[in-house]
Amino acid sequence: MISVEPMLLVQNIVNGVFMGLIYSLVALGLALIFGVMDIINFAHGDFVMIGAYLTFLLATTLLVDPTLTAFITMPLFFVIGVAVYKGIIERVLGAEPLIQIAVTVGLLMVLRNLALMIFKAEPRGVPFTVFGFPINVGPITIAASRLVAGIVSLVALFLVHMLLTRTKWGIAMRATADDREVAELMGINVKKVYAVTFGLGISLTALAAALIMTFSRADPYLGLLYGLLSWVIVAMGGLGGVIGVLASGLIIGVIEAIGISVVSAGARELFIYLTFFLILWFRPRGLFGRR
């Protein structure tokens, strides 16, 4: 019934692995925010979308490679993240989940429609990147942009892992995630940890957006895809630390690739969300030990 060219499947799975690395990077920010602050952020994907547009703007006005814009967008997004935290998120800390969801859905609508107003629903792609060439490994072709995106994501994941496990800040973050009150008693400035966590989580989306723009395009509807996708990854293994996020991201990337090659490119979300249903139903603690 369904016949799949084996090489095509392998090719798609290789692409899926690289996509999975980027998905992990996006989801890591969300996992940090959800894990440490217990804040339900529905607007996460839309920060990716805004980051993608910003990357486009910077790359085309400064005439630099999209990957380099991350040096500007990441600090900027950190500041935006802290500002959003101070302005909105701090007020709904510890509120009912429904209220948190409502507020972040509001944020999502603001971001998405701001992009729609400014860019008028036109997809924008960066016309140039130095990584625009393919690399042939035997019969398999790897786009250099995806390879670079994958490697940078992996490095970023590693750095965040080191931050969480080896630095004072990381230990403070994890302590706050475990028990806010005890952390406060131990002299950790929880408010500050929250602000930094949110800023860090948002600035990771800027890096992901810069990487995505080397081979994809920005459009206002990107937000829902990346938002739901990162929640799927967090559901699978989010609070199992960076390793859990990485493994889940890779699984999602490969599932998506198989869905694309076996059924159709339009079915990619179908497979991801069906996996989401199955994970929530049968492994509600995730594959890698969610609390």
């Binding site: 409502a102 509001g106 609508m109 998405r112 429609n113 992009a115 729609l116």
Partner: peptide, 12 residues
Amino acid sequence: GSHLLVYGIILI
């Protein structure tokens, strides 16, 4: 999209 922008602000 401006109408939905207003929604978002109202919701927040």
